[in-house]
């Protein structure tokens, strides 16, 4: 341990000091290399090409200033996609957090057969998003889907792939279904860390199970919930990509889509590199803003025990 010097006892936190200035950089290098190569370098490239109109094969490009940005932001289709993305994030996050929490609370109370019960709930998490999309698509298929038959039974002619809102129902259902197990695992382990003594003390104070849950368990779950909130929003914005791709079968038509799917569509299928780069820069800024808001305003209310 020649390179390390123990920090003085005066500082309460753990702190390690290096006697050579280069040593910490050496340790950081692999991680930094990964971040620079796979994150900063592409980001810089995206920012640069967002100011150009470029021919697909890269023979030439024209500087157009902010045109790609104003094009995107003033385009009503882009605005509609942004609005849908916001709506989709809220609905998917709320439903998958809510149902995940409900199932976790109930599973926490199960005593007999808890193992198989939890396994069944968690197993869905092992399904990859494209596979989830495929399974979902079979359920929602216009010709043979049982869900289409179910809606038909109630007099609703479900047309996933044709009708905007019908596709929304399908994509939302599949995305929520896929995410519930993840939330379930975290909530369940969160619930199991609530000390028995606290629960017993609460039992004396309040007979209502709902009140005990609201006043004692929920605040203690807040750090988990906050973590899951961020993860779920990211999931709804980005990881649902494969589900959309499978559901709209490569043909977006009039179906709803998220902003990241539109970036892919315009850039990779439309070969409009400038326009697509501008959209991805906008998306980066939105995510950055969202993260700041979450940590600034929400995290203050979270109490880490």
């Amino acid at each position: 341990m020649r390179g390390l010097v123990k920090a003085g006892a005066a500082t309460p936190q753990k702190r390690v000091q290096f006697d050579r200035p280069l040593t910490p950089w050496l340790f950081l290098a692999p991680q930094l290399a990964v971040v620079v190569i796979f994150f900063y370098w592409p980001s810089v490239q995206a920012v640069v090409s967002s100011f150009y109109i470029e021919d697909p094969f890269g023979f030439g490009s024209t500087f157009v200033g902010m045109e790609n940005y104003t094009n995107a932001l003033t385009d009503t289709r882009y605005q509609a996609t942004a609005a849908f993305t916001a709506f989709f994030c809220v609905v998917v996050t709320a439903l998958s957090l809510g149902i995940g929490l409900l199932l976790a609370v109930k599973a926490d109370k199960v005593i007999r057969g808890a193992g198989p019960y939890k396994t069944v709930l968690i197993s869905v998490y092992a399904i990859a998003p494209p596979v989830a999309g495929l399974i979902g698509m079979m359920i929602f298929d216009q010709h043979i889907g049982p869900m289409t038959a179910l809606f038909g039974f109630f007099g609703r002619d479900l047309q996933v792939g044709v009708n905007y809102w019908d596709t929304t129902i399908a994509v939302t259902t599949i995305s929520v279904w896929k995410q519930i197990p993840y939330n379930f695992i975290f909530f369940l382990s969160g619930l199991q860390t609530v000390p028995v003594s606290v629960r017993e003390a609460a039992l004396i104070d309040a007979r209502s199970g709902w009140r005990r849950f609201r006043d004692i368990v929920l605040p203690l779950l807040a750090p988990t919930a906050f973590f899951l909130l961020i993860i779920n929003i990211t999931y709804a914005m980005f990881d649902t990509f494969a589900i959309f791709d499978v559901v709209v079968k490569d043909k977006p038509a009039n179906n709803p889509m998220t902003l990241v799917y539109k970036v892919y569509l315009d850039g990779f299928k439309g070969n409009d590199i400038g326009g697509s780069s501008a959209q991805s820069v906008i998306l980066m800024l939105v995510v950055a803003a969202l993260t700041v808001v979450q940590f600034r305003f929400l995290e203050r209310r979270v109490h880490y025990g």
């Binding site: 009708n163 905007y164 009039n254 299928k269 439309g270 409009d272």
Partner: peptide, 21 residues
């Protein structure tokens, strides 16, 4: 040029036509 994208625009509008939008 950009014809794949023009097809995408058409596909979107055709869906809207047949769902009475």
């Amino acid at each position: 040029g950009f014809y794949p994208q023009i097809r995408t625009v058409m596909e979107r509008e055709f869906n809207r036509i047949f769902s009475d939008e």
